[in-house]
């Protein structure tokens, strides 16, 4: 058997086995809901905001994001050209130089 077959079998098996093991446990337990745990503070309807998932990433990569958002992905049309056209020129130059160095037909 190759690795792809193994991956298919092992994962399908895990998903099904997990379901089989989950059923009795889930059927046996009742669920009782309480207030959110807030170290004893009253629950005033606040939850974790999903925007905060990446706060640490933003802080650590602050300078990279400054460059990326401030200079690369600005959304301004002219900036696109400033990046895109040099790319075309570099591509052209590179290939033409390759051809002249290596010699044509």
């Amino acid at each position: 058997m190759d690795a792809l077959g193994i991956a298919t079998i092992l994962t399908t098996m895990s998903i099904v086995l997990a379901l089989i093991l989950w059923l009795p446990i889930s059927l046996r337990t009742r669920i009782r809901r309480t207030e959110l745990y807030l170290s004893g503070e009253p629950q005033s309807g606040f939850t974790v905001r999903v925007t905060e998932i990446s706060w640490a990433v933003r802080r650590v990569f602050e300078r990279i994001y400054e460059i990326l958002i401030g200079h690369v992905q600005t959304g301004i049309f002219n900036d696109w050209f400033a990046l895109s056209l040099p790319y075309l020129l570099i591509l052209l130059l590179l290939l033409v130089i390759v051809v002249t160095v290596r010699g044509g037909v």
Partner: peptide
């Protein structure tokens, strides 16, 4: 000079195709 022509063709068309495909620049 076919090789030089192909170099230019590939540069120009790859620029277009990477635009269609959304590759970095």
């Amino acid at each position: 000079n076919v090789i030089a022509a192909v170099a230019v063709i590939l540069a120009l068309s790859l620029w277009t195709f990477t635009f269609k495909a959304g590759i970095f620049p």
